[in-house]
Design a binder for these strands. Structure first.
Length: 758
DNA sequence: AGCATGACTTAGAAGTCCATCT
DNA sequence: AGATGGACTTCTAAGTCATGCT
């Protein structure tokens, strides 16, 4: 996989793309296309079941095709009804052979008091009757080969259950458990009790996420400080003093003056509308045109402020740092089930102007200030409850241990809920992350079966099944996202697999030397463009042509499919399977394969690292993780090239000197000249290495120009693959993961051995 | 039974820090 | 010592997906 196919175009300039034409096509009232007779469907369904085993002959196939096509012509009112009915049917039938889900997520054993290590920590045997979804608990088939003092046969049994392969049990002394705590300086507290290994403990099986939770509540944004008198605002050339509320909102705009956002019509319109709401009647009557507003003094003032901040003395900077540290210590941690855990985002989002991505209809709107009265606190009943700031009160205090958040509030732009949750290094996030990769590994075990199945479904008599099968093929092959439907007009117009529209693909029966090429061009999450041309199998191609019949560009490609239908189907195929598991699976398996393919044992460290990055890059390309090329890219590339050139000159010189030395030695044969030769030889070697390292760096950087590796590394690649790779090649983990990443993946670093296989 | 909503994961950009070079 | 630029951290938007409600 060479990533060749990806176009490198970037985030579409919001506003520049002409995609307005189809906004809001009403997908339900779309004119004719597609309809199938319900009865027919039923019959076919029956027929299908009865002769499922009989291989379709080519002819049958062709007939089916015709039939399908034929049925497309009827009215769509019908179609929608049919769709609904079909959905019903589907739901009904979906109960037939649902895999049993077993145990829950409850705490089988209390995690407090550092318990003895339990190797995989997930007891497959339900201790209580299952309630709702519980899959996955059992899938942690991690087999600790070297765990400290193994005991429990329970663990062993469990291992047996889930791990058909190897059964080794060498009891190795537990390795590096304790983490230097004196080392991180601060934190005299001796808790942190040498890094809690939650992954060696059992998980809850009752759906509760914790049993005890105590925290200090959120940190609110600083109150607004009015501008000094000499910073003025001008309207239509005349100075005008704004009242604090309007002034504050004006400063939000002023601070963004250098940003492209402020040049966009929608942004300006939304901002102005919301700004006016903050104005007094007098202000409102005067200020009627944003173009007549002059925020320059404010803008200059803020620039000066940040400049001044940079120029602060060391002492002052230190003081600020200390104060931040104090706040972090006070609010940045919570106690969850006897362990002190780091909170992810303990600061409430400050007010400001909404910065949506891509062509967002709400960009520029005012994100209002969050007050204690907006806040819901979640904690244990028996904990010390966080106190609201003096004279205020929380909106609500609740004690819900079925959720993981500590604080929440409703945001005013989309009306969605925002949360304060724990850091990725926390048990609660780590367990989930681990579980995610285990689900992906289960998919690995049955993916070939599923592939065979969807290929087969390409021939189905039912349109909805074919659509489902083709969509799944895209999700699998191209790592597309599921593609939920979105409320129109509320967000940027972006799509995923199920929400692809006719206008997003182009079919090329022949293209260059390839057949059946599908060209994708659409905006995905975060309005990142996905552009790709790929050859597909003939059957897929024919199906796509069928799906496109009688449709307008703005119609849904998969009009009989949505994420809910798809996921329900997947759930039936494998417990816990959803569309996004394919992304995780394909990303991780790609990393593993690429590492195997690219790492040569003889390579030196930089070369190995380059291989790793290339493997990582292959995944990033697959997942379409892009970034805007850094503004300083060209320049930094040039700098690097200069360094390389210099190094090359240096090398030439060194070589020349070596040659001279050799000649000298040949002539004199004395000890001194021999030493000289050695010295020069070493010098050459050293410089060669340095040069190579620089060249690797350059290659790496160039290839990385607009590819973002971080997202896949953090969210899609089973960390145990990387850990194993490091161990196998004796590369220190620090070369691959920085400190934060090591904290997040502590579980993997601790448990994966060099022979881990995804 | 469809839809809205809540909870949680994934995402790129912006902001900050810090090492290295000049 | 100050500037520079890249690495790391923070921020918060934008997805996914299951659920609970009507």
């Amino acid at each position: 996989m060479s990533g060749d196919h990806r176009n490198t175009d970037f985030q579409v300039n919001p506003g520049s793309k002409t995609n307005d034409s189809h906004k809001h096509k009403d997908k339900h009232k779309d004119k004719e296309h597609r309809h199938k007779d319900h009865k027919k469907d039923k019959e076919r369904e029956k027929a299908k079941h009865s002769n499922r085993e009989g291989r379709d002959s080519e002819k049958k196939q062709r007939d089916k095709e015709k039939e399908l096509k034929h049925s497309n012509g009827s009215s769509d009112k019908h179609r929608d009804k049919q769709k609904e009915k079909r959905r019903d049917e589907k739901v009904k039938s979906s109960h037939i052979d649902k895999p049993k889900r077993e145990n829950e997520n409850g705490y089988a054993s209390p995690p407090h008091i550092k318990s003895e290590p339990d190797d995989n920590g997930f007891d497959p045997s339900p201790k209580h009757k299952p309630t709702k979804r519980e899959r996955d608990d059992e899938e942690f088939d991690y087999k600790p080969k070297k765990v400290k003092k193994e005991d429990e046969k329970k663990a062993k049994k469990r291992r047996q259950d889930y791990d058909d392969e190897e059964e080794e049990e060498d009891i190795k002394p537990k390795k590096k458990t304790k983490v230097k705590k004196g080392m991180d300086g601060k934190k005299p507290k001796k808790e942190e009790e040498e890094k809690w290994k939650w992954w060696e403990e059992e998980r809850a099986t009752d759906g509760s996420k914790w049993r005890f939770l105590e925290h200090k509540g959120p940190v609110f944004a600083l109150p607004y400080e009015p501008l000094p008198q000499h910073i003025r605002f001008y309207y239509d050339g005349k100075q005008m003093k704004l009242n604090p509320p309007a002034e504050e909102v004006a400063t939000f705009f002023a601070k963004m003056l250098d940003h492209e956002y402020t040049t966009k019509d929608i942004f300006r319109k939304n901002f102005f509308k919301d700004w006016r709401k903050e104005m007094t009647p007098e202000e409102k009557s005067k200020i009627s045109d944003l173009n007549k507003c002059n925020f320059n003094e404010m803008s200059e003032y803020f620039k000066a402020q940040s400049e001044a901040k940079k120029q602060m003395s060391k002492d002052e900077k230190l003081k600020i740092k200390e104060e931040n540290e104090r706040i972090l210590q006070e609010y940045g941690f919570c106690i969850m089930d006897n362990h002190k855990e780091r909170i992810g985002n303990f600061r409430i989002e400050p007010p400001g102007l909404f910065r949506g991505r891509g062509d967002h209809p709400k960009m520029g709107m005012l994100k209002r200030r969050i007050r204690p009265e907006d806040i819901i606190i979640n904690c244990s009943k028996d904990s010390k409850h966080p106190k609201p700031p003096a004279g205020t009160r929380w909106k609500e205090l609740r004690h819900d241990n079925k959720v993981t958040w500590l604080v929440s509030w409703t945001e005013n732009i989309q009306g969605s809920i925002k949360y304060i949750m724990l850091n990725p290094s926390s048990r609660i996030k780590g367990e989930k992350d681990w579980q995610k990769y285990e689900t992906a590994r289960r998919l690995k075990k049955c993916v070939e079966r599923l592939r065979a199945q969807y290929r087969d479904d390409w021939k189905s008599k039912e349109m909805r099944i074919r659509q489902r099968a083709v969509a799944l093929y895209f999700i699998d092959k191209l790592a597309l996202r599921a593609g939920n439907e979105k409320e129109e007009g509320e967000t940027a117009d972006t799509v995923g697999c199920c929400s692809l529209r006719v206008e997003h693909i182009n079919l090329h029966p022949k293209m260059d030397d390839q057949e059946y090429v599908v060209e994708f061009d659409f905006l995905g999450k975060d309005s990142i463009r996905y552009y790709n041309k790929i050859p597909v199998e003939k059957r897929v191609f024919k199906n796509l042509q069928l799906f496109l019949e009688n449709k307008q560009p703005e119609d849904d490609l998969f009009d009989r499919l949505n994420t809910s239908i798809l996921n329900k189907h997947l759930q039936e195929l494998m417990d816990g399977l959803t569309a996004k598991v394919f992304r995780t699976y394909n990303a991780s398996i790609t990393l593993q394969q690429q590492l195997n393919a690219l790492t040569s044992p003889d390579d030196n460290l930089p070369a190995k690292i380059l291989s790793y990055n290339r493997a990582n890059r292959a995944v990033a390309v697959l997942c379409n993780h892009q970034r805007a090329p850094p503004k300083t890219f060209e320049k930094s590339m040039q700098n690097l090239q200069t360094k390389i050139d210099d190094k090359q000159k240096q090398l030439a010189t060194a070589r020349k000197q070596l040659k001279t030395a050799k000649a000298d030695h040949k002539a004199s044969h004395d000890d001194k000249s021999k030493k000289m030769v050695e010295m020069k030889r070493k010098a050459v070697q050293r410089i060669e290495e340095q040069l190579m390292k620089l060249q690797m760096q350059a290659t790496d950087r160039e290839e990385n120009k607009q590819i973002a590796l971080g997202t896949s590394k953090l969210n899609y690649l089973d960390p145990r693959i990387s850990v194993a790779w490091c161990k196998k090649w004796d590369i220190s983990i620090e070369k691959i993961y920085n400190k934060t990443q090591r904290e997040k993946f502590a579980w993997a670093i601790d448990m994966a051995e060099d022979d881990f296989e995804f």
